[in-house]
Amino acid sequence: MLRYIAYRTLVALFLVWIVVTAVFLLLHLIPGDPAELLLSQGGIAADPEAVAALREKMGLNAPLWQQYIAHMGGFLSGDFGESFRDGTPVIGQIALRLPRTLEVIAGAALLATIFGVPLGTYAAIRADGKADALISLLSSVALSTPVFVVGSVVILIFAQELKILPAGGFVPFSQNPLEHLKLLLLPAGTVAIALWAVITRMSRASVLEVLQRDYVRTARAKGLGRSRILRRHVVRNALIPVLTVLGLEMGTLIGGTVLVEFVFNWPGLSGYLVAAVDARDYPEVVGIVMTISVLFVFLNLVVDVVNALLDPRISLVKS
């Protein structure tokens, strides 16, 4: 088990290196001068003096390998430079906003799992019945509706028409816990809808497969009750692939809450990224992208380790 975890960690570190390098290459190997690209807007050539100043500031005049080392060094020490916009260290903003984004994702994952696993299991037990068809239709619709559409419609319904929840905004938890959770509900719920569809479908497929397994028949042969077989033998085994998918989806969400944060005015990391992109604030964009990517890789590592703990065979097979 320990060997397996060590192995997965090494793979994850390697991936982090790949990502950090890829971001560097993306910015430096594309045709054209990054500084010029950053400063030119819609076909209007940039002011050559400004470009020269920016090149100096970005260290673009140094040889490529020196820039690469500086880039890696900055990453390792958590120093992503200062924002072009206000000159504050990028890392500070990231530290402030990342928890807020994670909060939305965690809330969504919780909601999606609470509703998704039981419904998916139920659909599997009643496979090809009416309830199954309805759940399948609902999940298709949920999967096909982009998150900003869900968010906008949810605001229209709950804030505009019913007036039971605020349309958006943010209050720190320390200031007003109740209001904070109330404000969290709509963004987390919006993200949860698509996630719910994924979890429900995955649970259904996974339970269907486990139901065909011999050990479920053994459990019945023991004379165990339905609910015990369902909990201990069917759902427990079926959950392993579901958790994998949940972990991967959460990873994707770390960078994918951009739209939700924008819709609900939630000052998280992703929203900050959009502002940075909009302002073409190079250090901010690079800092955020790398933070998110590293979290993404790290989350996949956690998924692997949790899987190995849940299914003791995994650590044998893959290491």
Binding site: A22, L27, G255, G256, L273, V277, S293, F296, V297
Partner: peptide, 14 residues
């Protein structure tokens, strides 16, 4: 290795 929307944003930034 990169979340999809993030990559799109990165390209649009450039």
């Amino acid at each position: 290795c990169l979340p999809p929307l993030l990559l799109a944003l990165l390209v649009v930034t450039i």
